[in-house]
Simulated scan of single mutants.
Amino acid sequence: MRDAADNVTAELLELEVKRRPGRPRKAGAMTNAERQAAYRARLKADGISTYARPGVPDLVHRHADADELEELRAELESAKAELAEAHETIDELNDELIELRKAAKEDQALIKRLQRGLSGSIQACNEMQRELEAKPNSVTPRVVTKNIPESEWPFPGEPSAR
């Protein structure tokens, strides 16, 4: 409002407050955090824990099943001990396997050396046999045996029982 005698001052514009887009808020509307807190309070009143996923039993926050929880913890500890023993056994077996593989490699190397030596010996024997067969006047004469009738048995110095 201005004075009626004032000709210098401009008329004040009545500014309208613009409304926000969308539906206007109700007076008692809750925020998302307030709604979530109310939901959790309702679940807690019903005895349902919000820490567990649906379909998974909540063993940590149920006080009625403390004995079951202790049993499960004991079972877990025994399983951990058993697993540690199994790992130790695996480590021992791996060490033994490494030693056996080393021994097998050494044995294979020995077998190869013996085979090479044996093949050389076989070749030398074959050469000697060829040389002996090639000589007409060999050290060992060819013996022709004749059939001796049984009447001439026993030879002197042999037992007479036959």
Rank of each mutant, 00 (worst) to 15 (best):
2 R>F: 02
3 D>K: 00
4 A>I: 15
4 A>S: 11
5 A>S: 02
7 N>R: 10
10 A>P: 06
10 A>I: 01
10 A>H: 03
10 A>Y: 05
11 E>G: 01
12 L>Q: 05
15 L>P: 01
17 V>F: 09
20 R>V: 13
21 P>W: 14
25 R>Y: 10
26 K>H: 09
29 A>Q: 15
31 T>Y: 03
35 R>N: 03
37 A>K: 13
39 Y>R: 10
39 Y>A: 12
39 Y>W: 15
41 A>F: 01
41 A>D: 03
44 K>I: 03
44 K>E: 08
44 K>S: 05
47 G>N: 05
49 S>D: 00
53 R>W: 08
54 P>F: 15
55 G>Y: 00
56 V>F: 04
58 D>R: 00
59 L>G: 01
61 H>R: 09
61 H>W: 15
61 H>F: 13
62 R>K: 10
62 R>P: 06
63 H>C: 04
65 D>G: 04
76 L>R: 12
76 L>T: 14
77 E>N: 04
78 S>P: 04
81 A>E: 10
82 E>W: 02
84 A>H: 12
85 E>C: 07
86 A>N: 03
91 D>N: 03
98 I>Y: 06
100 L>W: 06
100 L>A: 08
105 K>Q: 10
106 E>P: 03
110 L>H: 04
112 K>A: 14
114 L>R: 07
115 Q>R: 09
116 R>E: 14
117 G>M: 13
118 L>S: 09
119 S>I: 08
120 G>H: 10
121 S>D: 10
121 S>E: 15
122 I>W: 08
126 N>V: 04
128 M>G: 04
133 E>K: 04
135 K>C: 15
137 N>A: 10
140 T>F: 14
149 P>R: 08
154 P>A: 00
154 P>E: 00
160 S>T: 01
160 S>G: 14
160 S>A: 11
161 A>E: 07
162 R>I: 02
